[in-house]
Amino acid sequence: MSETPKLVLFQCQWCLFAPADQEWVDTQLPENIHLAKVPCTGRINPLYLLNAVQGGADGVMVSGCLPEQCHFKTGNIAARRQLEEFSDYLNHIGYEQDRIRFLWLDLQDRGIIQKELAAFEAQITALGPAHNLATRAAEKVGGVNA
């Protein structure tokens, strides 16, 4: 694939404990990665993911805290259940499940997010652009009545 994939990163504001990492995400994220910072991964409604997918994202990465380190106790494991099912479900109808990735970060971790994003981008590049589900770019107007 010649084009760089379009990625969306949903990032829990607590998961990047190292200031350097957070600063990197806030200021130096490559242009093809769109950042959506959330107060907790538990706040991520599957609709956000759908919005990203319909906005043309080739891959979606969610980074949150390790299961037992959630700032709000259980937000991340609630998110895990829903988002895992949602990605499974999207896979059922044509959006490969490898395009959605959940990343757990330990508060002790340093410099991991960069590597993970690079690895994810390589994975999505290998998959090619997402082309199945309709995106908001209008293809045509009107279903059977076009």
């Binding site: 609709l47 309709a134 908001r136 209008a138 293809e139 045509k140 107007v141 279903g143 009545n145």
Partner: peptide, 11 residues
């Protein structure tokens, strides 16, 4: 949350 009409993305 999603398009209002009968566009492919909306449906």
């Amino acid at each position: 949350w999603t398009e209002s009409g009968t566009t492919p993305a909306g449906m």
